[in-house]
Each structure stands twice: as structure tokens, then as C-alpha cells.
Amino acid sequence: MELYFMGTNAGVPSLERNVTSLALRLFDERRTFWLFDCGEATQHQILRSPLKLSKLEYIFITHLHGDHLFGLPGLISSRAYQGGNTPLTLFGPPGLKKFIMTALEISESRISYSLEVVEHEGGILFEDESFCVESALLDHRIDSFGYRITEKDQPGKLDIEMLARHGIKPGPMYGKLKRGESINLPDGSLLHSTDVLGISKPGRIVTILGDTRPCEAAVQLAQDADVLVHESTFLHELAETAYTYHHSTTKQAAEAAKRAGAKQLFLTHFSSRYKYNDQLQQLEREAREVFPQSDLAREHVMYPILRHG
């Protein structure tokens, strides 16, 4: 599981940074990736990345401001040309479906794969045997949501040598033991999964927030997260400006991470006023004064999500 940022600028792109888009790469877990927000030119950023549109499974939109979704129509239309023929599901606030369908209809775009748009107002959006995704409303000028992705605990490794001694070969019996079930051995005795399974691996938690002022929902979504991605549009000297425009400062993002007990914080959504590297480093330094495990999100860098359990 890794994070890959394809846009870290707020509002408009610059020569150095694109507008908001972030991929959660799940190659080892399910051989796909999920996209969070899709600002203009996101499909161009994907072409410059190790990601493939054919592997895109879900898109989660935080809110309906243009710098977070203007890249959707082009990406959806182009996906099939890059081998993307599997179903694609979009999650986002009410109004997302109208935006997508209007753009595709007026442009007479033809989609050759199954496309589903799920509008929501928070709560649990998706759950299977491996992951659960839930959402909550933040504090922004329009409805803006944060997403909490919880990986379920993974069973430990099977003791292959012990199974071989019992005459158990790879197959359905392995699956039963991994699921925590017991099996009957050839001699009629019972073999419990706890006898042959190692220590389970704790699942990881990733929280990705949309644009927001400081709010309790952000802290709750980030509770004990291994990684928190939080907007930090301004240095804290512009806290009043941040409040006026319904955004957060670096210090406020760090305070949210600290309150939530998160393990790592990635800062993103930087104002275009911060053009140079030394200005961005100032954002990082300010956050680290409150929460030392703070890092600037850099575009086209693969960040592994570590297990902290």
C-alpha cells in the first residue's frame, strides 16, 4: 500500500505543481489503485507515473470545486483507450452524477465499460473482506468530505512445514485455516488454525481529507491513523485568511494529527503564493514544531504506508 501524489496545489496549477489528485496504490493488496480527487490534467500526471488507468478501480471525490474534479470527464473518456475495460465506480457528494453525465452527454463521449456514480452524504460507503471506507462531512464553503480507509487485519502466515508433517497439501484446507477454521486430519484428530497460523498483521488506516477548516470530524476520521493527508493551504501567520476561505494552516493540520494520534502527516493543497522550495520548506518546518512526523507531499514520489501495530 502506497500513496502517490499527482497534484498538491490549491485552486490553480502552477509550473511546478498540479491541482489536487492523490492515488492510493493497492498493487499487493488487490492489484488496483484508488484515486482521491481528480483535478484538471490528472490523466496527464498518470501518464508520467507508474500507475495505469486500466488498474483504476474507485474514484473518491471530496467536493465539487473545480480544482478537485475538472479532470474527471477527460480521464473517464480516455480510460478505455488505455486498456481500462473493468467497471469503475465514483463516490462523491450530491451533484457529482449530474456533472459527469452532463459532460459526457454534451461531448457525446462513449464509455465502453461499466460506470457507476454513487452520491453520498457520509457514512460507510464500501466494505469487503479486505477494506472498509467511511466518510464524514468537514467544514468548507460547500459540502466537503473526508475519507477513512481501514484495512482489515490480515491473518498470519501458515506454518507450511508443520502442515506437511500432518500430510496437508496446498489447497482448500489452507484457505479454511487462514479463515480461522479448524480441519480434520487424516488420523481423525482436529487441527486448529491457532496451531499453524502466525501472528496476524494489523490493518493500516489511511485518512484523506478534502478542503476544510479545523473541525472535530477531521480528528475523528484520523483517529489512530497510520497516515493522515490534510490540506495546509497557508502558513499559520495567515490563519485569519485561512478561516475566511474555509481552509487550514500548517499548524492547524499538525494539531489535528496530534489530537487524533496519527502516526504520520502529509501536508498538501498549498497556496500558489508559495512558489519556491524554501517557502514550502517553511510550511513543513512550521508543522513539525507541533507534530514532528509531518512531511510535505511531493508530486511523483511513491510513499509506502508502514504498519505501526
Rank of each mutant, 00 (worst) to 15 (best):
H63S: 10
Y4M: 03
L265R: 06
E289M: 09
Y4W: 01
F234A: 00
L197H: 02
S272G: 14
T8W: 05
S200L: 05
L96N: 12
R25N: 15
K251C: 12
L64P: 09
I76V: 11
H269T: 05
E40K: 15
K258G: 03
L90K: 00
T42G: 10
L53T: 04
L235P: 06
Q252W: 00
S107V: 10
D128M: 05
G92I: 05
I149N: 03
Y81C: 10
D224W: 14
S193W: 01
L191H: 11
R288N: 08
Q281V: 12
I305L: 05
V219T: 13
V19R: 15
L104D: 09
R79Q: 11
H236V: 03
I76W: 07
E134G: 11
L163C: 00
T241P: 06
G156P: 01
F291M: 02
S200E: 05
R25Q: 15
L75I: 09
L47T: 12
G74T: 10
I100L: 08
L115P: 10
G71Q: 04
A217C: 01
L22F: 09
G309W: 00
D159P: 07
I149M: 00
I208D: 02
L177W: 04
H230E: 13
A297T: 13
K176E: 06
M6H: 03
E116T: 07
A217H: 09
E286A: 05
S189W: 10
K152I: 01
V227Q: 06
R285S: 11
N184T: 14
L235C: 02
E240Q: 14
I59Y: 11
R17V: 06
P202M: 09
L163N: 03
E129P: 10
G198S: 04
S54Q: 13
L138P: 06
T194K: 15
D28I: 05
A41P: 15
Q264W: 04
T102P: 14
A23P: 04
T250A: 07
L283S: 10
F5M: 04
F70M: 15
H308F: 01
A164C: 15
A222V: 02
S144A: 05
F270Y: 07
G74N: 13
A225Y: 03
S294H: 08
S248M: 00
D187R: 10
A242I: 00
R307W: 10
N9Y: 11
L209A: 06
Y276N: 14
N85S: 11
K263V: 02
D159I: 01
V229F: 00
V196M: 01
F291W: 02
E255K: 08
H230Y: 13
R179P: 13
T8H: 07
V12E: 15
D143Y: 15
S112G: 12
D224S: 14
S112Y: 10
T207M: 03
V301F: 12
G84K: 03
L22R: 11
F145N: 14
E40C: 11
H300I: 08
F145E: 09
T42R: 07
F60P: 12
C215H: 07
E29Y: 01
F60C: 11
D37M: 05
S135G: 03
T250D: 07
L185V: 02
Y174V: 00
